[in-house]
Amino acid sequence: MNIINLFNALPGACAQGLIWGIMAIGVYITYKILDLADLTVDGTMATGGAVCVMMMISGHSVWLSLLVAFIVGCLAGLVTGVLHTALGIPAILAGILTQLGLYSINLRILDNKANQAINVDKYDLLVSLRYIKDVPFYRNTILVVAVIIALLVAVLYWFFGTELGSAIRATGSNHNMSRAQGINTNAMKVIGLILSNGIVAFASGLYAQYQGFADVNAGRGAIVIGLAAVIIADVIFGKIKGNFAFKLASVSFGAIIYYIVLQIVMWLGLNSNDLKLLSAIIVALFLAIPYIKTKYAPKKVVKKGENADA
């Protein structure tokens, strides 16, 4: 239990947290903005990496590979969206179906292997766990991913301020009102799912590069990590009155905090096999807190109409 070991591990935890932060921003779009729990991401979090690594191995550039990973993620989101809206399957089940189907597809993409390695010495990777120390600062993975997040937040901030983006937010807020205002709520849900899964697959492409391999199991429990980041951000930064860009950025901070906490509990001697159990317990607790609060410690109710000055 040498504290130096912990400090040495922190930059890596930051880098991983940032990459998962991108993924968590994808989850934020469905979970917070659209009020849908989309489990497709457990599949797309492996798909993006598989696509990215296989494309790079066959000689394509890292940016093209990431772009295609993004597009394939979008397609997965489209499938879930159609299952949910056009075919009436509940959102959670639609996500599970797509995710299950993706497992086979991911294996095919990976040439029927459980994982495919990509050597950092042979390929020009954008991020890697080797690019944390002893590289020029502009190659440093932490900086590269931070810049990507800043760009992503800027683009999403713009998008959700447009007419179309506002309509997506309205759909998540009140779908009756949205339809009464002429918004095609089904189409908005599909667009949100497409965008979310595209971002998750992009994060997956980065994560595979970072680790040096694409793994068919890379997405297992991804939704829980994404939710954990969203919830941590809500608990820690929720009280600060910030605009939408701040909210998105805080989600990536939530992911960093999650990974630092994981690093600390591992340093304290927790078996890494038990991590998923720990994550599940933490997320369950945080999801339950609002319910427990209202059920067992209700706030004083202000009577309707008392303050009504309308």
Partner: peptide, 25 residues
């Protein structure tokens, strides 16, 4: 829409029946 601002709600209503593009909301 409870989670949106008064002006944002009005902006949504101002576009009732119109195509919603990537112009400013």
């Amino acid at each position: 829409a409870a989670t949106m601002q008064i002006d944002e709600n009005l902006a949504l209503a101002a576009r009732r029946g119109k195509f919603r593009s990537l112009k400013k909301g």
